[in-house]
Every structure is written in C-alpha cells, then in structure tokens.
Nucleic acid binder design. Structure first.
Length: 797
RNA sequence: GGGCGCAUAACUCAGCGGUAGAGUACUUGCUUGACAGGCAAGGAGCCGCAGGUUCGAACCCUGCUGCGCCCACCA
C-alpha cells in the first residue's frame, strides 16, 4: 500500500474534476499541432470534412452528437497512424444569418432597407467577425480535434471563386437556366425558397363555396336547366381576383354542357371561360375548380396547357396589387389594394357574402406550407429565378450509390436516397437576399445576358457599357454542395481541363484527401446537402465526394420530443460540459447511438451514469498509481526507464485472475477495434464501459488487493504490471470517446507523454498506440476455457 | 396516397434463431484502505397483438394495432 504522504495519491484528487484538465489539454494538443495530419506523414490519408455549421449558430445537442462521432472516427484513425484530416469551417447560411442580423438591427431601430445593401452586408461581415467564431470555440470545448489551420468559410475568396466557377460551367453546359415560374415565396423574407425549404403542416381552415355567375347572355339560354351560376370550392378565396378560368373534369355529366361557356368573375367583372381538364377531381367540392395560374402550382400547370392569362395579384410582401388588372377591373378593386393577403381574404369574403355569392362555408383541414426559417405561410409566386436542371446530374449520383461507390450506414438510407433522387425536380438556386454569393450574371439594355466569372465591361452583342448585375444571391446549398472539394483547394488546385476539370495537382490537399473517407450527418439534411454534394462532386471532380455516409439519428429530449426553443426543452451541451465535463457528455451520446441510427433520447440519468464512469476510471487509476513500485510513485513518473522496467516485467499470467483479465482485455481490444471499423460507435462505447467497470474494476482490481498485500514478490510485481498495462491500454481504447480524462491519466503514468502526441514506440503488431500490450495470440479454445475456469474460480472467491 | 422506422423490467435502451440483459429507480445489507458519484445481494418482464416457418422464435415470414418520421400538385 502507498505510504502516507505519497505524492501520487495526492496527484489525483478523490473525485475527477474535468474543468482544469479539459482546458489544459486542448491547448497543449492544439499548440503542438497534434491535430494536423502531418503528424503521421507516412500514413494513408483519411479525411472528414465537417458539415459546416451556420456562422450564426451556437452549439446545440445535434452538433454535439455529430461532432463527437466525427471526433471518435478521426482520433481513432490518427491513433492508427493514418494521415488523418478533419477539416473544420462554417457556412454563411444566407437566409438564417441575414435574419439574425436584421433582428439585431431592429433592436436599434434600424432596418436593412434604411441602411442600404452595401452597408447592410458590411454589417453582417462585422457581425460575423465578432460572433461568428463562437461555435468553433464551442467545438474546442467538446474536444473536437479539427485541423484549425485549414479552417474554411463558404464565403472565403477561394470558396467564392469555386461557386462562380460552378455556376458559369453549369450555364455553359446548359445545366443552369433562367425561368419565370411559380416559386415558393416567403413574403416576410421576401425571397424565393426551394421546394425542400418549405415545411408543411396540417392546419384548420375553411373551404369556401363561391358562386360564379354565367355570363348574362347565356343565362337565358340555360334558363331551362335552372342554372345561372357555377359553384367552386376554394381554401383561398382571395385569389379569386386572379382567376382566369373555371375547370371541370371532361367526364363530369353535371358540367359537360357548360364547357366553353363564359362566367363573370364576381367583384372583378372579368369574363372567364369554363374549361375541361383531367386534373380536376369530380368528387372534390363541387367538381368545379377556380383556376388561378399565378397563385397555385396546379393552376399554373393548367394555365400553361390551356394558354390562360396569368394575373399576379400580390406584391412581394403578400399584399394586393392591381398592376396587372385592366383599368376597369382595377377601378372595381381599388378598396383591396395594399391589403395584406389575409386581410384581403376577409374583406373579399365579406363582400361576396353581401352579394349573396357564398353558398356555404365548411370547416376544412389541409396542409399549408410555411418558410422553414421564419414560419411565415409561403405564397406560390410568379417570378424570374435561376434553376439547375437536375436530371443529368442526378443520374450518375444515383448510379454511384447503386454501384456501391458510396455506402450509406445504416443501409436503409440508400433506399431513401435513391427514391428521392429519382423524383428530383429542378432546383431553384436564386435567392432575393443580400447576404451570399452574388450571381455572376449581367444584363444589358439590349436584353443580352452575360454570364461570366469576371465582371464584364462591355456587352459583347451591342457594345453597351451600362451593365447591371443580377441583384440576387445563390441558395446557401449551392455553395455548400462543393464543400468536400472547394475546401481542399478546388478549382485552383486543378491542372488542365475545362471548368475546373482535369486533375488535382499532385501534392495538393485536393489530390491527397479527395475523395474524403466518410461524411457524418443527421438524416435531416440528406436531401438538402448530401445528395447535392454527390451530384456536384461527380460532375466537377469525376469522383464521389466521400466513400461512406454515416447517418445518425437526431437528439431528442428525455420524452423523445424534438428539442426546440419554443417548447423550452432544449438541453444546452455547453452547460452540461460545464457540469459534468465534455468526456461524460461525449460518452453519453456515443453510448446512446444504436446500430439502426435511431433518434437519441437524452435523459439526465445517462449523463449522470457517464459522469460516474469518469469518476470510476479516475479512481481506478488512482488505486493503480498508489500501488506501483516505490520508485514510480512520483508525479510524472514512472520515468521512461522505470516504465521500460514495468513493461519488461513478466506479463505472463501467474494465476487465473491474471489470465482472465488479460483474456478479457484482449477480447475487448479486438471487439472495440472491429466495432470502430464498422462504425458501430454505440456498441463500442458500451463494451468499453462494461469492461472497465464490470471486469477490470469489479473483479481484477478487487482480486489484486490480496496479491498486492501478499508475500510473493513475483506475484506482486506481475499484478502491478498487469494492472498498469491493462489500464493504460484501455485508456487508449477509450481515448477517442473521452479524450480529456484519458490523456490526463495516461500522461501521469507515462512521463508526461500523452495519448495524443506523435507516436514514439512502435510495436510489431501495428495496432500501435491503439493497443499497448502485445499479447501473443491465444488460441480461441484455450481462451474460452480460461474464461470459464476463471469465472468459476471467482465465484468461489 | 406512397415509403421508412420503432414497440423487450417502473424509466432509458441493448440483444436479433437455442434456458430473457445493462444502466437508472426500488428493497436489504455492507463500506475508516481506489471510488457513497462506491460494493454485494434481491424483487422485478404473456420481449405490442394474431397467425405461420422451425426440433426450437423476442429474434425469420404474413397480417393487425399503437406511436414517430419522410415524401406527394388534398383546389
């Protein structure tokens, strides 16, 4: 037993306190360049690019999980001797960032309009410099071992150049085009958003049945039928101002005789035809549907087919405008001008009611789309936008996954991906925002469109010099889909070829690390991001952007509810780190990962369990230290020489307990290594937990007490050696999961040499730092026998 | 309307063809010598329901029920 006043017993306090340890180690690691792949210059390259968090973001539990997984992978590979790169960075997140800074401005009574575009963008840059690094600092607290010297931002010069190159190339290839179509418009953000940026929610509303009178001259002719109007059902009565037809199903007996007749649109006075179209479901409502080509996707399609006029009735903020009405119509509608769409709805319904033109109003539930950023109800809105023609890009992207060049883990996401990719619609990439990459397109008065990587000075067609750049910016995902190669130096790192094609210059990061090894992400952005990276990677690099996609679940609260500010169930990872330390949080998250990629319910109990585990291994180490040979009992020792002596000590088991723990340990090393190779982080974490607590502490450490206090010097020495070496080896296995505490303890045993640094000792068995003890291979049968014997033996004890 | 996932002890979850597991919680002891953030022992379960395959099913197949999610042009 340790003598009183032993410096080692004092070196470790009774309970583990993560605070100082974590701060200290991260700094040492970073300062010594341990996170740079170059510390393993000869290893095979292994690369992960971080899913770039929004610059405005702050670390939430979802990030914590995502980054923990990546850090486990990258630390594991680094320990295996790979030239392991984890490239960090942030996304400019156009709409999200703009919204945040707008809100800030509002507090000071300013608005972006008052500031003007240039000043506003300047303001965002300022804001970014000041607060943008927050999430990256928080990543460090988690222990994320990113190579910060390679940090990127989507609006860095190089990455901006990449986006321009991307667009111009796609344009020249005919894969990008401009079109006037209905887009999902957010009247609050005043921009188009893509289909997948719309959240649908079923909402309670009404279905209004409106009477549209037949034209007078026809009423008399129809008098015999007793019909002088058609009833249409709609959830959006205010759009009736823009109706340019009423459609019925061609087979609908009720209306067949009316097809081709004209109606008079109430309130407006416009004459509109009754048309036939198979799209109309005769069983819905009255079987007659009002057609508003400028404000409904279905109606737009019908309008195209039947050549109907498209009358836009709304401004970009969603208020009624009368620009596209005839003067007579406009005169009728003056009272609605400037009314917000929902106020207009009320007013129009009232007026129709007063005119006796409402047959009935029913309660009705339907799904309403809203902006994923601000939850404003989106408006199908007619406008000029840029699109990516996605079909030609999607085909190779599907093939790559089908052929196994990219593997989804777990596999079920393959199906989801392929299903999604085969039904892709063209991607609207222009946004009416101020923050983002400006579209490299200029318009000349002569109506020439110039698409160019560098700003043109004159129009190539008419020689005019007053060129105006497209005011819009790109969808954020249009830049982040280049991330796996733009961050590594594309396009400048390419030699030869057109449009950034060719091949990466040898020796460049791009040549070394592309394709990256694995992408780690939640399933929520497979559609937004993963699919697009695959398309663009294949298109511009002629190779997949990553070989594997590890898809994990989302972190939910203890009840399984989504964490959200409005529900108030958000658990802040930084508060937890402050409470229990980063290691406990990391272990909790990783131990909760299931092989099926289920969502994770994060309960306090689990955090507590893992905090206790930290303490457990801390105290086990304390015990082992106190029982090392006398000479070793100094802070920072055993010295290398002493250490060598310990290792040289005969590790050959002297009794059943020795055999048993070595066998257990050996199996754990093997199992955990395999589990990590197979991306089963949850099982790996659980296995380690059980080994440390259940085998090492509960059994071997308890049994060692008699050996250490006994008279047999040899037994004592062997026990000491096994205690120490199994512990040190286990610390290495645990290190990817819990980097801080393992480094701290390890360093105390190992003359200041941590787990993280460059490898010193090489072992013939190449598992290198990952597995310190090189055990002779034990025949499986013998191992099993020993296990059984040992278990029986211990039952007797 | 199409697709996916989940249902195992009070709670959170492992197990995925061979006698039901862990942690937490609970009960009863123990503990001045690594750790009370500890140790030992214990109670706990028609493994969602109904069929089928099999010598044998929590595990494989079919159907059903209940929750959750994704996709789709429900006026």
């Amino acid at each position: 037993m340790a003598s009183p006043g032993n410096p080692l017993t004092e070196a470790l306090s009774k309970t583990y306190d993560p605070k100082d340890v974590e701060q200290k180690w991260y700094q040492i690691w970073e300062e010594n360049g341990y996170f740079k792949p170059e510390i393993n210059p000869d290893g095979p390259p292994f690369a992960i690019v971080i899913p770039p968090p929004n610059v405005t973001g702050s670390l939430h539990m979802g990030h914590a999980l995502d980054e923990t997984v990546q850090d486990i992978i990258i630390r594991y590979h680094r320990m295996r001797g790979d030239k392991a790169l984890w490239l960090p960075g942030t996304d400019h997140a156009g709409i999200a960032t703009q919204n945040v800074v707008e809100k800030e401005l509002k507090k000071t009574g300013l608005s972006k309009e008052k500031l003007g575009r240039e000043k506003f963008v300047e303001r965002i840059w300022q804001w970014k410099e000041e607060y943008g690094g927050q999430i990256l600092r928080q990543l460090r607290r988690l222990g994320a071992s990113c190579d910060w010297s390679r940090e990127r931002f989507t609006m860095d010069a190089g990455l901006s150049k990449a986006v321009t190159r991307e667009f111009v190339t796609l344009y020249k290839e005919g894969l990008v085009y401009r079109g006037k179509r209905l887009v999902n418009w957010c009247p609050r953000c005043k921009t188009a958003i893509s289909d997948i940026e719309v959240d649908f929610e079923t909402k309670k509303g009404q279905l209004w049945y409106l009477k549209y009178p037949l034209e007078k001259s026809q009423i008399s002719r129809e008098a015999g039928h007793g019909i002088d109007y058609i009833i249409v059902a709609t959830t959006r009565p205010e759009t009736m101002l823009g109706d340019t037809a009423v459609a019925v199903n061609p087979d609908d007996e009720r209306y067949r005789h009316l097809i081709g007749k004209m109606l008079v649109l109430p309130l407006v006075g416009r004459k509109i035809p009754i048309i036939k179209d198979e799209l109309v479901d005769p069983t819905f409502g009255t079987g007659a549907v009002k057609v508003t080509p400028a404000h409904d996707p279905n109606d737009f399609e019908m309008g195209e087919k039947h050549n109907l006029p498209r009358i836009n009735i709304l401004s970009e903020t969603g208020a009624i405008v009368l620009d596209e009405f005839t003067p007579e119509e406009a005169a009728n509608l003056k009272k609605y001008a400037g009314l917000d769409r929902f106020k207009a709805r009320k007013a129009i319904v009232e007026d129709l009611e007063a005119a006796g033109l409402i047959e009935k109003i029913e309660d009705y539930e339907n799904s309403v789309g809203s902006c994923y950023r601000c939850h404003t109800v989106i408006e199908p809105y007619l406008s000029d936008q840029w699109y990516v023609a996605v079909k030609k890009l999607a085909e190779p992207a599907i093939r790559a996954v089908e052929e196994g060049k990219i593997q989804f883990i777990p596999d079920r996401w393959t199906k989801v991906y392929i299903n999604w990719m085969t039904n892709l619609k063209d991607w609207c990439i222009s946004r009416q925002l101020w923050w983002g990459h400006k579209i490299p397109v200029w318009y000349c008065k002569c109506s020439e469109i110039i698409v160019s990587e560098t700003p043109p000075t004159t129009c190539p067609k008419c020689g005019g010099t007053s060129l105006v750049q497209d005011p819009d910016v790109f969808d954020t995902w249009f830049s982040s889909c280049l991330w796996p190669f733009s961050t590594l130096g594309w396009p400048d790192a390419m030699e030869g070829g057109v449009g950034g094609r060719g091949r990466p210059r040898s020796g460049s990061d791009l040549a070394t690390y592309y394709p990256t090894s694995v992408l780690v992400t939640g399933y929520d952005i497979i559609t937004f991001w993963v699919s697009r990276m695959i398309m663009m990677g294949l298109h511009f690099m002629q190779d997949v952007p990553f070989k594997k996609v590890f898809v994990h679940g989302l972190v939910r609260d203890a009840q399984g509810k989504k964490m959200s500010k409005s529900t108030g169930n958000v658990v802040d990872p930084l508060i937890l780190i402050g409470d229990v330390g980063a290691d406990a949080l990391r272990l909790a998250l990783s131990a909760l990962i299931s092989g099926q990629g289920q969502d994770i319910k994060l309960a306090d109990e689990k955090i507590k369990e893992c905090r206790n585990f930290c303490n457990k291994i801390w105290n086990a180490s304390r015990y082992v230290m106190m029982n090392l040979p006398e000479g070793a009992q100094v802070e920072g020792s055993p010295s290398p020489a002493q250490n060598a002596k310990l290792q040289a000590t005969d590790l050959k088991p002297r009794n059943l307990a020795d055999k048993w723990i070595l066998s257990r340990y050996h199996r754990t090393v093997k199992a955990v290594t395999e589990l990590l190779d197979n991306y089963d982080f949850g099982e790996a974490a659980r296995r380690l937990y059980e080994f440390v607590w259940g085998d090492y502490c509960d059994w071997y450490l308890e049994l060692s007490k008699s050996a250490l206090t006994g008279n047999d010097a040899k037994t004592k020495q062997t026990t000491q050696a096994i205690l120490a070496q199994v512990l040190l080896g286990t610390l290495k296995l645990l290190h990817p999961f819990m980097p801080f505490i393992t480094e701290e303890i390890y360093q105390k045993f190992n003359a200041g040499e941590g787990v993280c640094g460059p490898e010193r000792a090489t072992s013939p068995n190449a598992v290198s730092r990952h597995n310190i003890i090189v055990l002779a291979a034990w025949p499986a049968a013998e191992e099993k026998l020993i296990d059984e014997q040992a278990e029986k033996h211990m039952e007797i004890l």
